[in-house]
Design a binder for these strands. Structure first.
Length: 416
RNA sequence: GUGGCCUUAGCUCAACCGGCAGAGCAUCGGAUUGUGGAUCCGAAGGUUACGGGUUCGACCCCCGUAGGCCACCCCA
């Protein structure tokens, strides 16, 4: 046997056992996207590195270390390394928005996307190199009404997928002006306490004081006494945030204020999002306010499986078997006719005894078996594999009769 | 990128102190001579992740590599 090749590090295969849960979640994504008036957009899985670099503000680690670079086969070293697999959806969407002059479309523009994202980092619990995200974006609406709408949408998504106990965490770090004031206040607060901070946080204090707050090792006492971002919001930002809270209350969305929430998408959470009012301008478009969120589908599916979310019943499976093992061509012929009638049908070309064929049908999850007799017989038997009941049917009206029996005996619950 | 633990059949795991690599489940076949998931019998399935070293002899000890899990860095 040739040497085995395994899946690339940090990726995983979607196996048949998990597929129904995925399909369920994907169905909710499509349904909600459409019900909330979003239009689908798909952008390339790879883009120029520069697009992501500009979108992320060149923050060194993310761009230089964790970007999944792809190389073209030809060209100079530079040309070969100017592409990267997308680490997040927003940059590509904004690029497409600008490229296709979408600012002339009726505003606000509502877009959604579902697809794989990539980060070249060492894999860890629920953090893969390839992961799937559902993303929605609203461009041209300053909020806060739309902010509340999107949070309510995320809330509904988890409810419809069947996840219980999902709570929204909320915070505002304001615009660039109030954020700068807040950052100063944090530095002032933590600087004298530096000795009580972890080594990492002491470094963060220099680089990005906000990040000190989400240090898991941060002394709870220090955290509780730290200045809160909400107290440093300017008038406009405070009004925005208060407006959002009021609307969430009116919509009945449960949320918690989390003063330590200081970044966009926490990978340990199920999803996250926020406003990016300046991004479009940075990427060369006409300035427009924008907001979006991305929800991690992998983690949602894992959660749904843990909570054993019930899946909608599938349409019953019919297996076509025959008395003579070598009758495969006729099994296929009958199976095709049944499929013409809209049934979900399975058969195989193996030469196995009737006993083995039925065993295989049962193991494959078939609810019904159509049993063909000796070649030449114009009749067939329909067997209910649950009850063992059988009925004799004429071959020329078989499809119609099976449809009738299946509809009659198997309540079609949940199948849409 | 850094650190800890781990890697034996498709899956879950055994194998004494270094002495011929095994079981359960799953798969395939037979018992059941036109009727299924049970039972019984049997078969197949392994370069013990990969590469090196120590040893008369290595799944076992040592080194390296890859992969997995967990944590750190980072988190778009």
């Amino acid at each position: 046997m040739a040497r085995k090749i395994s899946a690339p590090r940090g990726t995983h295969d979607l196996l048949p056992e998990e597929a129904p849960t995925w399909e369920r979640v994907e169905a909710v994504v499509r349904d909600l996207s459409s019900r909330y008036g979003f239009e689908r957009i798909d952008t390339p899985i790879f883009e120029r590195i520069e697009l992501f670099a500009r979108g992320l503000g060149e923050s060194s680690d993310a761009v230089e270390k964790e970007m999944f670079r792809v190389s073209g086969a030809k060209g100079s070293e530079e040309e070969r390394s100017e592409w990267a697999l997308r680490p997040e959806p927003t940059a590509g969407i904004v690029r497409a928005y600008i490229e296709h002059g979408m600012h002339v479309r009726p505003s606000p523009l509502r877009l959604w996307m579902l697809g794989p994202m990539f980060r070249y980092a060492r894999p860890q619990a629920g953090r893969y190199r390839e992961f799937t995200q559902w993303d929605v974006e609203v461009i041209g609406d300053p909020g806060p009404m739309v902010d509340a709408e999107l949070i309510e949408l995320a809330h509904r998504f988890y409810a419809e997928v069947g996840l219980r106990g999902v709570v929204a965490h909320l915070n505002s770090i304001g615009d660039m002006v109030c954020r700068a004031r807040y950052r100063d206040a944090l530095t002032e607060y933590f600087a004298p306490l530096s000795s009580r901070l972890s080594a990492d946080s002491q470094r963060r204090l220099q680089v990005n004081p906000l990040r000190v707050l989400d240090d898991k090792d941060l002394d709870p006492e220090l955290a509780a006494g730290a200045p809160k971002a909400l107290d440093y919001l300017c008038e406009a930002c405070r009004e925005h945030f208060e407006g959002l809270r009021e609307l969430l209350g009116r919509l009945g969305v449960r949320y918690e204020i989390n003063h330590r929430l200081v970044r966009g998408l926490d990978y340990y959470a199920l999803g996250g999002g926020g406003r990016y009012d300046g991004l479009i301008e940075v990427l060369g478009g006409r300035p427009a306010p924008a907001i979006g969120f991305g929800l991690g589908i992998d983690r949602t599916v894992i959660g749904a499986q843990k909570q054993q979310v019930t899946l909608p019943a599938r349409t019953p499976l019919v297996a076509v078997v025959s008395a003579s093992p070598d009758d495969a061509p006729r099994r296929l012929e009958v199976a095709t006719a049944l499929r013409d009638a809209g049934l979900r049908v399975r058969t195989d070309g193996l030469s196995r005894t009737l006993s083995k064929q039925l065993e295989a049908a049962a193991k494959a999850g078939a609810r019904w078996a159509v049993l063909l007799g000796e070649p030449g017989l114009a009749r067939a038997t329909l067997r209910d594999l649950e009850s063992g009941d059988q009925q004799d049917l004429a071959l020329d009206t078989l499809a119609a009769e099976v449809v009738r029996a299946v509809d009659h005996r198997t309540p079609s619950r949940g199948s849409k």
